[in-house]
Amino acid sequence: MRGRRRGAALLAAGALALTACSGGDDEAAAGGGGEAVADVAAAEKFLEPWTGTGDKDVLIDEPLEAPVAEGTTVVYLDVGTPVSAVMWENLQAPAELLGIELERVEVGRDAQSINTAMNTVVELAPDGVINITLDPIFFEPQIEQFDALGIPIASGSVMTTVEHGLPEAFNGPEWMKTNGAVLAATAVQRSGGAGEYVFYNVPEFPFSALELEGARAKMAELCPECTLRVVDIPIAELGSTASDRVVSDLQANPQTEYFIAAVDEVQIGLPQKLGLAGLAVDGIGMWTAPPNYEQIIAGDQDASLSVDLNLMMWTVLDQLLREIGGQEYEWPDVQTRAATLSHVTHQENAPEDPVVGYVSIPDYQERFAALWLAD
């Protein structure tokens, strides 16, 4: 299908006068564009930890000091994105294994809704809270209340945990910059060393800017002459009109050879719209959802930097259990953390089950059960 789109785009390129709006463009490039050729061999070498098949282990391999108390209550903060819904589902199995009572609280996307939701969480007085992507700056007053009540918060994809007095997330700022570097290197490798790229940034996600930072640095290293444009896609458009914005941008910038998306939700439904528009630009995103896997398996989406979302949620819960029990722990180095949970996925190595997705450690459930003294 990508080959057919390429042919259609080449035929249409000379005949169409393409006009569109691409708000948020930033010509902060690694170079000046033109006939640039990126270093594909260097990209492939860098990507080996994310493309190999070596054995991996859970990030913290010390057992809990005591079994989890029956009836332990945990609140999950739901930010309302499709990936957030997947992560909620991924918490069900470990909660059942441990007898944990889960409570899902939808936090909304504006300051007032978040404040109301977090006040509700304080009233629930759970044993712990899991926060995925919600910036703590929006609930600073409640953090003080949680601290006074002895309620720990474990976070995933939150960039300012330490600054707000919360435990360090395993996938914090440096982890996200590393992911950005992997995205850029994969874009170079998958495009065969193209010279013109675009990064689709979601400003509301703090991790998106860090991915962009990592992508810029790696692109400058692999191809000083390459161009990396930046286009903002509002979070409100994820799951609705994000793909339309991408199509409009690529129409307005026909020199673009490959795109990078901070979140793979941008690509959901995009291949069909690219085909209808006669465009043949491939791309890669991160935080793969089941529809992305379906597109990759069908050959419609080129690639994704997959995160084992099951392993991620079991890891966040593992951290929370240690915080609840007052047990010390230490994260491994950043590259180990990043390469353990993520992998470059394309049609040749796509998972059979798009709902399960990428599995980093096949027997992770047994390993966690042993660490949690639950077997």
Rank of each mutant, 00 (worst) to 15 (best):
E221Q: 13
A252Y: 03
A194D: 06
Q255A: 14
T241E: 15
T161Y: 00
P152D: 07
V230W: 01
A181M: 13
A181N: 06
S240K: 15
T256D: 09
L238K: 03
G195I: 05
P224R: 08
Y258Q: 09
Y197R: 07
E204G: 07
H164N: 13
Y197V: 04
G165N: 12
G239K: 09
L212G: 03
A242E: 07
Q145F: 06
L183S: 03
L250F: 09
P224M: 10
S155A: 14
N179I: 11
D249H: 14
F170T: 01
G150R: 09
T160L: 10
V182Y: 06
F199C: 04
S157N: 13
R190G: 05
S208A: 14
S155Y: 06
E163C: 08
T160W: 08
P206C: 03
V158Y: 01
K218A: 07
V198K: 02
V246I: 15
G239I: 07
R190S: 13
I233D: 00
E211R: 14
P173G: 05
I153E: 02
S248I: 00
E237Y: 10
A187K: 05
G165W: 11
A236E: 15
D232K: 11
R229C: 01
N253F: 10
S155V: 04
R216I: 00
F146C: 06
G165L: 06
G165I: 05
Q255H: 12
Y197M: 08
A154R: 03
E196G: 02
K177A: 12
A209V: 00
A194F: 09
A184Q: 05
I233F: 11
P234L: 13
E174S: 12
M219A: 04
N179Y: 09
M159E: 11
T227L: 10
A194S: 13
A194G: 15
I153P: 00
A217T: 13
V182H: 01
R216C: 02
D244G: 14
E213Q: 13
P152A: 04
V182G: 03
L222N: 01
T161W: 02
V247A: 09
A194H: 06
A220Q: 12
A185M: 11
G172F: 01
Y197S: 06
V202H: 02
G172N: 03
L183D: 03
V202G: 00
P234H: 14
A242S: 14
F207V: 03
A194M: 10
E174A: 14
H164W: 03
L210Y: 06
V188M: 11
G193H: 10
N179K: 13
T241W: 12
S191K: 04
I233H: 02
N179P: 01
L228C: 09
G192Y: 13
T186N: 14
P234R: 11
Y197T: 07
V158E: 02
A220Y: 00
P173C: 05
P203R: 10
L210S: 02
A242Q: 06
E204W: 06
N253K: 13
V202I: 15
N171T: 12
L183Q: 11
